[in-house]
Amino acid sequence: MAGLAELGRKRETRFGLLLITPAVLIIVMLLGYPMGYAIFMSFQQWNDKLGADHRAIGLANYEQLVSDPAVHEAMGLTAYFSVITVVGGVALAISIAILLNRTFRGRTIVRVLLLVPWAVPPVVNGIMWKLIFDGSVGIANTILKSLGIISASVQWLSDPAATMNILVFAETWKLLPFLCLLMLAALQGVPRSLYRAAAIDGADAWNTFWRITLPNIRGPLMFALIVQSMWSLKVFDTIYVLTGGSGGPAGGTTTINFLAYLTNFSNLDRGYGSAMAVGIMILVLVIAVFWILVFGGFNRKRRAADA
């Protein structure tokens, strides 16, 4: 009897492996080689403009990465961008989700329209914000002027800090729908009875949020934070279109991923650019692990389900 169970278990495992194979094969075949190639290049002196004589230089590219002031600057910008889009974005998403979780007329249509920014491809996103924030023909200036808030046109995209803020705004606009839906869905999963109990205990809104809502949407919150951290650290398309492919003005929107792009494609310094990209990958993983640690591991619940 025990032997039969063992056999069944083996068969199960084999079936499981069979199911996994196609996905793993596609990923390894398509990404394994390029990934290995990139890691290999990151240990090479490999600048296409210096001809074809590549040579192994050990960790030199990574040493440069640590000491390069351009990298420091880009990391600063990345931190600014990511903290606002991740923490601010998720916080805003929770607020909007709470707002939309109430019952009101037209709730469905509002939720549907909420999806609009999500549907706009990044390339289009960039063009759109240019039409709005252009210093001479953008509608933002026209509106602010007619409201009497400003008297002369504001050059949104000529000041490094302002351009960065517009980028933050554009990305937040784009990512909010997904985060909102995620949070909305999470809120709907919180049992009503908990809220009723809190109300009976006389808890105010703020207390209810911290004691009931937040602990009960912990899982989705972690998922949102991880996914958004990845997207924020790797933001590219919107910067490319918004700044005419430059990461400007004055490098004001050159985040670390955009710097990796410039190094790889503008400067054709593939070795250093690869080291930068590998660095970004490690950074993304570290941050993902950080969120997992903060939220106490992503398989605690799974373990509970196994038992």
Binding site: M230, A260, N264, S274, I280
Partner: peptide, 12 residues
């Protein structure tokens, strides 16, 4: 895999 920046994989 999610963490890989696409940029570096373009040439390979």
């Amino acid at each position: 895999v999610q963490a890989i920046p696409v940029i570096v994989l373009a040439v390979p």
